[in-house]
């Protein structure tokens, strides 16, 4: 991984704190935040924090991991429907791959995503673990 720049720091509110927006018009939660709502042009949103619990909608097992994630493979990657609205795509960890199931309850946790080599900084974000 290289090039940890403003592009990364700008992501911190959503990656570290789950900051999202809720449409005043439809009540739909958008994550990442949007300035304009698709389909109706609405520009009125209120800030909300994602609820860190939800259900696994679908998943796949990544066996050939992309650059920066080679050491983590094979791993499960899925889409999670969060309880308070909004969806995220992230890794499902702390569970044997054969125990990952559609519909399982999960909790969002703050985790290390990758690092920038021996002398670089760690990149953090969210992953999900089974709810126990």
């Amino acid at each position: 991984m290289s090039g940890i720049t403003a592009r990364y720091w700008r992501e911190i509110p959503r990656r570290y704190r789950g900051e999202a927006v809720k449409s005043v018009k439809t009540g739909k939660v958008y994550f990442p935040s949007r300035l304009v709502e698709p389909g109706n042009g609405n520009r009125k949103f209120k800030p909300v924090k994602l609820e860190y619990s939800g259900e696994l909608l679908t998943f796949t097992i990544i066996r050939i991991a992309p650059r920066g994630f080679e050491k983590q493979g094979p791993y499960a990657l899925g889409i999670i429907e969060l309880d308070g609205g909004g969806r995220i795509t992230t890794q499902i960890v702390d569970v044997p791959l054969e125990e990952v199931k559609i519909g399982m309850r999960v909790r969002v946790e703050f985790r290390k995503i990758s690092d920038d080599g021996d002398e670089g900084i760690h990149l953090y974000g969210y992953k999900v673990v089974p709810e126990r």
């Binding site: 698709p38 909608l57 679908t58 889409i79 969806r87 995220i88 795509t89």
Partner: peptide, 11 residues
């Protein structure tokens, strides 16, 4: 359509 699959109502 949206790029992210998770933004689509029906995957």
């Amino acid at each position: 359509d949206t790029i992210a699959l998770h933004d689509r109502e029906d995957l």
